[in-house]
Design a protein around this nucleic acid. Structure first.
Length: 149
DNA sequence: GGCGCCGTCTTCT
DNA sequence: AGAAGACGGCGCC
């Protein structure tokens, strides 16, 4: 399934009707055309993505059990608890899963999140306000945070 | 405030 | 066994 935007097309992988993967177009920097959705279908998943990218709140649709190590599952579970407009630091997440010193490992787990937007890893920042990184490129992270505040 | 180094933990070679 | 990574903290300029 695809959702077209002025920044490129977002590809969403579905298995058994549930979200299993999500890939965003790579953006080296914030491009000229302002962000907008140009075409999306009218199903729960598309509506969710459309809402998120429009800065509206929406209920996260069903996700297929995410593949990953046990540690990653804990991290992703903790990330999905962050609601729109809020942010956590890598350190806070590390503490939440009972490994306060594993901050670096937490960062690594974020980068392996297979479904950005659905598991809001863009709401995770560094302890001193730094953005950290983003698998699809920092411009996306900045855009998403801007839309939510 | 910015830069560098070391500690710490999980994952991949 | 070794290296690397979306970090954090501390010391130093």
């Amino acid at each position: 399934m695809k959702i077209e935007t002025t920044w490129g097309s977002i590809e969403i992988k579905l298995l058994d009707g549930k979200v299993a993967g999500c890939t965003l177009p790579f953006l080296p920097t914030q491009p000229n055309p302002p962000f907008a959705i140009t075409d999306a279908e009218n199903d729960p998943v598309s509506r969710f993505v459309t809402a998120v990218l429009s800065g509206k709140n929406a209920k996260v649709p069903a996700l297929r059990k995410t593949q990953g190590t046990e540690f990653q599952q804990y991290v992703w579970m903790e990330i999905s608890k962050i609601s729109a407009g809020e942010t956590r630091t890598y350190g806070e997440l590390a503490e939440a899963i009972g490994r306060p010193k594993a901050v670096r490992a937490v960062g690594s787990a974020c980068g392996h999140n297979p479904v950005p937007l659905f598991i809001p890893c863009h709401r995770v920042k560094g302890a001193h306000g730094g953005l950290g990184g983003f698998s699809a490129g920092l411009p996306w992270k900045m855009l998403l945070l801007t839309l939510e505040t």
